[in-house]
């Protein structure tokens, strides 16, 4: 039983098209879970259901077995960090952070103490009397975080909080978020479309597509064993080759080539997928299996390696190969797809 449970959540604005189609999700206490997916997949809608901005048409949202589906936003006490930060422009940093505490009618000294502590924890010392306009992007982000955390929320919800920061700051901030999250042990849901960001920070990842969760696993498991073609594509698998099952662990391509696969699944015809990094370019053909012959079409330089687009008998394949051998476009090459690197989806 999860700390947070979403049961059969359906959301539709016009009762024809569902934004979320019977979504289920269990989150354990203290976990940081990411909702990952392209725009329009329903990840933000899911977050808004949890926050209470959207009442689902069907389904339930439970926190510690308590049904909160119809509890209004302001009674939930969840911390929210918006993509736009949504800092109140007419209030100072201090008053922004104190906003939630003042609504709880806490004692003035208590508010002062808590806000000061949070401002310190979020590395905002000395900025208390500034207005949001006078802060840098990273500082605004930290104010938004401080404002959400100071109310001691039961859960923390982050909606693409890093997407307005530049690349370097993003990496620092995600480490920062992870550090604060672990320190406070607060259950956190993180919405993002950035795969790298999501893998680096999450305990678990829910990959979403068209209103459903396609895979819910640890980042390591998703990286190594995507369960569906959508997940595979989303996390960087570029090559998809249709195969038919011959016997257990042995598959055959349309051209009759045989492929050994270590990770067998229960299917008759499926797609083999493999990362460009995992394909080897070989010179001598001493093995007849897991081999694809093709011609180099385009070569691009990636820095540490070259990327080749290869036209093979089973379609176009993208291969990354080290700088040791350079192949020219038009050159015939042989590709080896190692049995332990092929994933079937």
């Amino acid at each position: 039983m999860g700390y947070i449970r979403l049961k059969d959540i359906r959301v539709s604005y016009d009762n024809k098209n569902n934004i979320l189609e019977g979504l289920n999700l269990d989150i354990q206490k203290g976990e940081l879970v990411s909702l990952l997916g392209p725009s329009g997949c329903g990840k933000t809608t899911t977050l808004r259901v949890i926050a209470g901005f959207i009442e689902p048409n069907d389904g339930q949202f439970l926190l510690e077995d308590e049904d909160l589906t119809h509890v209004p936003v302001h009674k939930r006490n969840f911390g929210l960090v918006f993509q736009s930060y949504a800092l109140f422009p007419h209030l100072t940093v201090f008053d922004n952070v104190a906003f939630g505490l003042k609504l709880k009618k806490l004692d003035k000294n208590v508010i002062q103490e808590k806000v000061d502590a949070m401002i310190k924890a979020c590395d905002l010392e000395g900025l208390g009397q500034r207005f949001p306009k006078e802060l840098s992007g990273g500082q605004r982000q930290r104010v938004a975080l401080a404002r959400a955390l100071v109310i001691e929320p039961k859960i923390l919800l982050l909606d693409e909080p890093l997407s307005n920061l530049d690349a370097k700051l993003r990496i620092n901030m995600r480490i920062e978020i992870k550090r604060i999250q672990k320190k406070l042990g607060i259950t956190t849901i993180f919405v993002t479309h950035d795969q790298e960001e999501c893998f680096s920070i999450s305990d678990k990842v829910a990959v979403m597509n068209k209103g459903v969760i396609e895979q819910y696993d640890t980042p390591e498991e998703i990286y190594a064993h995507p369960k569906t073609e959508f997940v595979a594509r989303f996390i960087g698998f570029e090559n998809f080759i249709p195969l038919k099952k011959k016997e257990n662990h042995v598959y055959v391509g349309e051209n009759g080539a045989l492929f050994h696969v270590d990770n067998d699944v229960d299917c008759q015809s499926c797609q083999a997928t493999i990362r460009p990094d995992d394909i080897l370019v070989i010179t001598s053909v001493d093995n007849k299996e897991n081999i694809l012959k093709g011609t180099v079409e385009v070569r691009t330089f990636l820095g540490k390696s070259y990327q080749y687009e290869v036209a093979t008998e089973l379609g176009r394949v993208v291969v990354n190969s080290s700088n040791e051998h350079i192949y020219e476009s038009g050159q015939d090459i042989v590709l080896l797809l190692p049995a332990n690197k092929i994933i079937l989806v």
């Binding site: 926050a51 209470g52 901005f53 209004p72 936003v73 302001h74 009674k75 939930r76 006490n77 969840f78 911390g79 929210l80 918006f82 993509q83 736009s84 949504a86 800092l87 109140f88 906003f99 939630g100 609504l103 709880k104 404002r147 959400a148 109310i151």
Partner: peptide
């Protein structure tokens, strides 16, 4: 977002 932020912080 401004309104929603206020609501999430406990404002009706």
């Amino acid at each position: 977002d401004m309104m929603e932020a206020a609501e999430s912080l406990g404002a009706n």
